[in-house]
Design a protein around this nucleic acid. Structure first.
Lengths: 139, 139
DNA sequence: ATGTATGCAAAACATTTGCACCTGG
DNA sequence: CCAGGTGCAAATGTTTTGCATACAT
């Protein structure tokens, strides 16, 4: 549990609780607001400002990764150590992680062709998950 | 010039000017603010609220595509009719468009494997363009 | 003890909206 | 003329920040 010390962050209650939540929550992708509410449900009152600050520190420390699945808020997930991309259901919000080496490889090729030095990349595939596609009504 | 009528939008000065700008500007990817300022430079004073409204209408009509290259603002580009992805220089802001059929193909395969019905997707590759990589100082 | 973290309220931003006025056809 | 469009200012939602207080070591 003490990856906080490893990255040079003082072990404080808010940081511990937030890290713990990200480790145990079954939806691994949470917004600051999600985290705020989830902590309230467990009687942990932590200011939203603190949550934002802590998440930003975690991101800088490499503990979490920030995503922008939609345009209205950031979501965070624990950095599992291996890169992966995402399939996102636009109806129910389901998130599926995947890795495809051919895609990764081709990205490197393309970057090389254009003289780009890749630092990062993200691939989001939006659509309807199996369940939402089946139960879909109308067009 | 009258693609406006085609998509059922009344031909008004703001709409014309914005469309014209997107067609002729050499950086094809612009934020609402960019457009606002670029129009000011040409003595066209159009309210920012109108620019947002018009861009949203254009997006709905399929005339433009909205992107979220970074988390702090949306950028828009004319819909050239063919899908493409982007290489983005994190230093100078340069944008390079590319198409890779192998990547596109693999996305479909992955979606299929997970029972997903794709509606859209985006791939952003961030890094340093050739020029910025060369002239880079420090780590 | 002391430097750092936190909470709160206020600020900062990008974007949206209400409403009175203007404009295109 | 009249529906729809625009401008302005105010509202919104998310994220950041200033500052006084509380906490970890």
């Amino acid at each position: 549990m003490e990856e906080l010390k490893k990255v040079g962050l003082k072990t404080t209650l808010p940081r511990l609780k937030i890290l713990q939540l990200l480790e145990t929550n079954n939806q691994h992708h949470m917004s600051a607001e999600d985290i705020y509410k989830a902590l309230l449900d467990v009687e942990e009152v932590i200011g939203l400002a603190t949550i934002y600050r802590v998440l930003t520190q975690f991101e800088t420390a490499g503990l979490v990764i920030r995503h922008h699945f939609d345009d209205n808020s950031s979501v965070f997930e624990l950095n599992a150590g291996y890169h992966h991309d995402h399939l996102l259901c636009i109806k129910c919000g389901k998130v599926i992680e995947f890795v495809d080496n051919v895609i990764e490889e081709h990205q490197r090729t393309i970057a090389q062709q254009h003289g780009f030095e890749i630092t990062d990349h993200c691939l989001y595939i939006y659509g309807y998950c199996a369940k939402c596609y089946d139960t879909r009504v109308g067009s």
